[in-house]
Nucleic acid binder design. Structure first.
Length: 646
RNA sequence: GCUGGUGUAGCUCAGUUGGCAGAGCGAUUCACUCGUAAUGAAUAGGUCGGCGGUUCGAAUCCGCCCACCAGCUCCA
C-alpha cells in the first residue's frame, strides 16, 4: 500500500498502481468529477497517471489556476484537431493556454476569416461530443522527428529539434489527432463544457519579426457556460470603458489624419485635465524638494552622441538635417536626461549640494513603429513628469525610497494604487551591443543594488530580463488597460553610465572628485497615458477633484438665468470649476446632457431657489440631493476635492 | 514594420447586378418658460478617407497611399 499525503495534510492509503482519479474517487464522487489533473510531489500530471510510490497529491480542479490552464490547453488541441479536419493542408505551430483562454498558431495555405469560426466551432463541438480519450505517448527524439516529418509538420520538427537530446518526447493523442505537447491534458475531449473562439490575428513564428507571420486563433473555455458568458460580458463591459472611444466621445481628445499618427490633439476638456494633473504634480514635487528646469525640445546630434542615444536609440528619434550634405544635424529629444545632466554640469558641485532633485514637465518625441500607436496610451509626442536625482552613493537608497513614495502618493491620489504591479526590469546579457551599454560588471552592480533596495523596501515584484533601459535597470510600475494589455505608468531607474559619459562629479568632504549616482524617474508618468487610464478606470466619470467641469449650474427658466450666472461666478471665486447652462431647454433635457457628460454636480435654480437664496443639488451618482445654501454646497464639494475622493 | 479588419453628414449606420447620396440622433433657427435623464416645427450639413486607373457613367470594380481598430513585434 502507498501512503498519499493530501493538500490538507491528511494521509490516505491506496494500492500501488492506482491512478490519480482513483484517489480522487476515494475522497468523493464530486471531487472525481471535478478533477482535471493531479499535482504529484509538486509536478502536474494527468488524472490517469498511475502512482507507484508514496507521494503528496493535490487534486487539481478548474478553480485552480493550473486547472484552468490545463483545461484551456486541451481546448486548444481540440481547436487544432478541428482546424486540421476542415483544412487538411494547414501546418500546426504552437497552442498554449494563456490567462483567460488559449490560442493556437496555424500556417494556412489560404488565409481564413472570422466567418470560418462557426464551422470550426461546430467541428470542435463534434470532437467534444465524441468524448475522445486523450492519451500520452512517450517517444524518442528521433522517432518524434520522423513522425512529424511524415505528417509534414515542419514547425513541430523545429520545436522538437530544440528539445534536449536523450529525453523522452511526449505526444498527446485524441482520436486520429496527435500533437507534440508537454502536457498534462484532460483525460478526454468530452470534459470541455463551454468554449468560444474570440479573435483571429497574426503572430510571428516564435515571436520573431523576421519569421513568417502565422494565423493565431484565440479562444476561451470554462467549466460552466454561465461563467463563460459572465466573462465575455465582462470583456464587453471593459471595452465600453475604452478611453479611445469614450475619450473621443466626451471631447477629451481627437486625432486627424492630416496631423499624423500618434499625434493626438487634446481638446478643451483634455487640456484642462492635463493642467489639473500638471499643477498637482509640480506642486507635489516642489513640496518634496524638486527644482524645476525647462530645457530645449531638441538638440544637436552631438549631445545624443555623448549620451549614447545616437548608438542605441537612433531609429526611435526624429532627426533633422543631412550630415552627408554638410548640414548641422538636430534631433527632437526622446528623453530629458542629457539636458538636465548638462544643467548639473554647469558649475562645480559640492557634496553639500546633494541630493539634487531636478524635475521637468517634459515633452518628448519618439518615432514609434506605425502599428504601435494606441489612442492616448502609445503616441509619438507626449509629455512626462520627468526628473533626475543626483546623489552620493550613501544617499541612493533614501532617494530611491523617496521616488517610490512619491509614485505611490500619486497613484493613491488617482485611486490607482490597487491597480498596479511592480516589475524589476533587467538587461539581457545575451543582447548587449545594440540595446544595452555593454558593461557586465556595472550591470551586475547596479542590478544587485536595486534588488537590495527593493527587497529592503519589501516591494513585491516580478523580474523581466531585457526590459531595462539601455543605461540601467528599472523599477517599472505597470498598469493594464481595458484590453488587458500592460503598460508602464511610472518608472524609477538607476542610471550608472551617463554620469560617466557626461563626466559628472561632485567634490566630497576630502576635496576629492567623486562620480555621483543618478536616479532617473517619473512621478506620474506621461500625461497622455495617465489621462487615458483615468478615463478607463472611471469610465469617463472622473473623481470630482479631477473633473474638468465640477459643477454645472442649470437655470430652470429664463427668469433665473442671471441668478445661475451669479452662482457660477461665486463658485469660480472659490476655485470651483463651474459653468452654466441657461439655454431655453427643459430642465430634464439639460440634466440628461450633464449626466451624459459625467459632470459631478448639477445645481438647479428655479424661482423658488432664487427667492430663498438656495441651490437644488443633483449629484451624477446619487441623483437629487435636495436644496441647500450655496455655502453648504461649497463646503461639501470643497471637502471632496481636498480629500481627493476617488 | 507585419497579419487581419474598418473608413459614407458631428455620432450610429443604410445604400441592390456600376445609373440623381439616405435615415435616426446631434447641430442651427423659431416657438414653448418648463421642477431632476430626451418639447415641437423648420432649416442647414457630404471632395462617399486621398490620389490614380477602368468605364458613356464609380460610394460601388482595380492599383497605390493615408488614417482608425485588434493582435504580433517593439516600447530608451
Amino acid at each position: 500500500m502507498l501512503k498519499i499525503t493530501l493538500k490538507d495534510g491528511s494521509i490516505v492509503e491506496t494500492e500501488e498502481g492506482s491512478r490519480v482519479i482513483d484517489v480522487a474517487k476515494s475522497i468523493s464522487e464530486g471531487l472525481a468529477r471535478a478533477a482535471l489533473a493531479g499535482r504529484v510531489n509538486g509536478k502536474l500530471v494527468g488524472v490517469t497517471e498511475t502512482l507507484n510510490a508514496d507521494c503528496s497529491l493535490d487534486i487539481v480542479t478548474f478553480s485552480d489556476d493550473e486547472g484552468k490552464s490545463i483545461y484551456r490547453h486541451t481546448c486548444s488541441h481540440i481547436l487544432a484537431q478541428a482546424v486540421k479536419n476542415i483544412f487538411p493542408t494547414v501546418k500546426l505551430a504552437i497552442g498554449p493556454s494563456i490567462s483567460n483562454g488559449f490560442y493556437y498558431d496555424f500556417d494556412f495555405k489560404t488565409p481564413i476569416t472570422k466567418e470560418d469560426f462557426e464551422k470550426i466551432e461546430k467541428e470542435m463541438q463534434k470532437i467534444i461530443k465524441a468524448n475522445l480519450p486523450i492519451e500520452r505517448i512517450d517517444v524518442s527524439k528521433e522517432k518524434a522527428i520522423e513522425f512529424m516529418r511524415e505528417a509534414g509538420e515542419n514547425y513541430k520538427i523545429e520545436l522538437i529539434e530544440e528539445l534536449p537530446d536523450g529525453e523522452a518526447i511526449t505526444f498527446y493523442k485524441q482520436g486520429d489527432f496527435t500533437d507534440l505537447c508537454r502536457g498534462p491534458h484532460l483525460s478526454s475531449t468530452g470534459k470541455i463544457k463551454a468554449f468560444k473562439l474570440t479573435s483571429l490575428t497574426g503572430a510571428y513564428w516564435k515571436g520573431n519579426e523576421n519569421n513568417k507571420m502565422l494565423s493565431r486563433i484565440y479562444g476561451t473555455a470554462f467549466d460552466k457556460k454561465a461563467d463563460m458568458d459572465a466573462y465575455l460580458e465582462a470583456v464587453e463591459e471593459a471595452k465600453r470603458r475604452d478611453h479611445n472611444k469614450i475619450g473621443r466621445e466626451l471631447g477629451y481628445f481627437m486625432t486627424d489624419e492630416n496631423i499624423g499618427q500618434g499625434l493626438p490633439l487634446l481638446m478643451p476638456k483634455g487640456a484642462k485635465l492635463f493642467q489639473i494633473l500638471n499643477r498637482f504634480v509640480e506642486d507635489t514635487e516642489a513640496e518634496r524638494g524638486y527644482l524645476m528646469t525647462r530645457t530645449p525640445l531638441m538638440a544637436k546630434s552631438d549631445l545624443y552622441k555623448i549620451s549614447g542615444h545616437w548608438d542605441h536609440y537612433r531609429d526611435g528619434m526624429f532627426v533633422m538635417g543631412d550630415e552627408d550634405k554638410g548640414e548641422e544635424v538636430y534631433a527632437l529629444r526622446p528623453m530629458t536626461c542629457p539636458f538636465q545632466y548638462t544643467i548639473y554640469n554647469n558649475g562645480l558641485k559640492s557634496y553639500r549640494d546633494l541630493p539634487l532633485r531636478y524635475g521637468e514637465t517634459s515633452t518628448l518625441f519618439r518615432n514609434e513603429a506605425s502599428g504601435e500607436m494606441h489612442g492616448l496610451i502609445r503616441v509619438r509626442q507626449f509629455t512626462i513628469s520627468e526628473g533626475h536625482l543626483i546623489c552620493m552613493p550613501s544617499q541612493l537608497e533614501q532617494e530611491f525610497k523617496g521616488c517610490l513614495d512619491l509614485a505611490q502618493y500619486m497613484l493613491k491620489s488617482f485611486g490607482l494604487l490597487e491597480d498596479v504591479s511592480y516589475r524589476f526590469s533587467k538587461w539581457d546579457p545575451k543582447n548587449p551591443d545594440k540595446k544595452f551599454i555593454d558593461d557586465p560588471k556595472e550591470w551586475a552592480y547596479a542590478e544587485s543594488e536595486m534588488k537590495r533596495i527593493l527587497d529592503h523596501l519589501g516591494i513585491k515584484y516580478t523580474e523581466a530580463v531585457g526590459e531595462a533601459a539601455f543605461y540601467g535597470p528599472k523599477l517599472d510600475i505597470q498598469i493594464k488597460n481595458v484590453h488587458g494589455k500592460e503598460d508602464t505608468m511610472i518608472t524609477i531607474q538607476i542610471d550608472m553610465f551617463l554620469a560617466e559619459r557626461f563626466d559628472m562629479s561632485y567634490i566630497d568632504e576630502n576635496g576629492d572628485k567623486i562620480r555621483p549616482y543618478i536616479i532617473h524617474r517619473t512621478s506620474m508618468g506621461c500625461y497622455e497615458r495617465t489621462i487615458a487610464l483615468l478615463i478607463e478606470k472611471y469610465a469617463g466619470a472622473l473623481p470630482t477633484w479631477l473633473s474638468p467641469t465640477q459643477v454645472r449650474v442649470l437655470s430652470l427658466t429664463d427668469r433665473t438665468a442671471d441668478v445661475a450666472k451669479e452662482t457660477c461666478k461665486k463658485l469660480a471665486t472659490f476655485g470651483i470649476r463651474a459653468e452654466t447652462d441657461v439655454r431655453g431647454e427643459k430642465i430634464g433635457y439639460k440634466i440628461r446632457e450633464a449626466q451624459l457628460e459625467k459632470v459631478p454636480y448639477m445645481l438647479i435654480i428655479g424661482d423658488k431657489e432664487a427667492e430663498q437664496e438656495l441651490v437644488s443639488v443633483r449629484s451624477r451618482k446619487d441623483g437629487d440631493l435636495g436644496t441647500m445654501t450655496i455655502l453648504d454646497f461649497m463646503m461639501k464639494i470643497g471637502k471632496e476635492v481636498n480629500d481627493r475622493v476617488c
